[in-house]
Simulated assay, not measured.
Amino acid sequence: MREALRITEIFHSLQGETSRIGLPTVFVRLTGCPMRCTYCDSAYAFTGGKTMTLDEIMAQIESYGCKTVCVTGGEPLAQKPVHLLFKRLCDAGYSVSTETGGGQPIDCVDPRVSRILDIKTPKSGEMGNMLWANVDAVTEHDEIKFVLVDRSDYEWARDYVREHRLNEKAPVIFSPVWESLKPVDLADWVIADKLPVRVQVQLHKLLWGEKPGV
């Protein structure tokens, strides 16, 4: 594997999702994604970007003086040299997470990395490209996320969580699609169903709106 990656952006912001919500984080957004989810909020990362060596990436991350890093996309696991980046970051003492759409195998990711697995719902349009074996690879060090478009998506995710007892594998997050599903509706449904999941609204969009670099 070449020690270089195609990068859309590297920036310092607050983590808007997962159990690390609100934590200052350096984001490394890789270019390219084989999926086309109906609600994608990072389509600008499908193409373009620039090729950076791992040394260049590490130097830019270090310049922010922040020890928490999130490797995202696009689909970060679609670029195989990302595994070299994971190793270098973990060896350097960074706390690392990666956000994956679920279509690439996660069992080869450095075990020191927290894997945020997005399970595709019917309204995502990408259930057919989901690698379902990834669900079995999840550990308590990871997190499982469902992005929900509407009530039917919620009901499907609710039933999937119950059937597979996902909350016993790892923390489970239900997130409403921005400006599509009202967060208060999702909250009411979860409470009514006594579902052991975390309802989460994207903090970065509440603070800065839907745009790159946040």
Rank of each mutant, 00 (worst) to 15 (best):
I61V: 14
I61C: 01
I61Q: 14
E62Y: 08
S63E: 09
Y64E: 07
Y64I: 02
Y64R: 01
C66K: 08
T68F: 14
T68S: 14
C70W: 03
V71C: 03
T72G: 10
T72W: 04
G73M: 05
G73K: 02
G73I: 07
G73Q: 02
G74D: 05
P76Y: 08
P76K: 05
P76M: 11
A78T: 13
Q79I: 11
Q79S: 12
Q79H: 10
K80S: 15
K80I: 14
K80C: 13
V82M: 13
H83F: 14
L84V: 03
L84Q: 15
L84P: 01
F86D: 08
K87S: 12
L89H: 03
C90W: 01
C90H: 09
D91V: 02
A92P: 05
A92T: 00
Y94M: 09
V96H: 08
V96I: 04
S97P: 02
S97A: 12
T98G: 09
T98L: 12
G101F: 09
G103E: 14
P105T: 02
I106P: 06
D107M: 07
C108G: 05
C108M: 12
C108F: 05
V109T: 14
P111Q: 10
V113R: 14
S114A: 13
R115A: 00
R115I: 13
D118N: 06
I119C: 00
T121H: 00
T121N: 08
P122S: 07
P122T: 07
K123R: 13
S124M: 07
G125P: 04
E126C: 07
M127D: 13
G128Y: 04
G128S: 11
M130Y: 14
M130G: 09
A133K: 13
V135K: 15
V135A: 15
A137H: 15
V138W: 09
T139D: 08
T139W: 06
H141A: 12
D142R: 13
E143S: 04
E143D: 06
I144T: 04
S152V: 02
S152Y: 09
Y154R: 02
E155K: 09
W156E: 04
W156S: 09
R158W: 04
R158D: 00
R158K: 15
D159N: 15
D159M: 06
D159W: 01
D159Y: 01
Y160W: 11
Y160P: 02
Y160N: 09
Y160Q: 11
V161A: 00
R162Y: 01
E163F: 12
E163K: 08
H164V: 06
R165W: 01
L166V: 05
L166Y: 05
E168Y: 01
E168H: 04
V172N: 02
P176E: 06
P176D: 08
P176N: 03
V177M: 03
V177I: 12
V177N: 08
W178H: 15
W178Q: 10
W178M: 11
E179A: 11
E179W: 00
L181K: 00
L181D: 13
K182P: 03
K182N: 13
P183H: 07
P183M: 04
V184R: 11
D185L: 10
W189Y: 11
V190Q: 03
V190S: 04
V190Y: 01
I191W: 06
A192R: 15
D193Q: 06
L195P: 03
P196H: 09
V197G: 09
R198C: 00
R198K: 04
V199L: 01
V199Q: 11
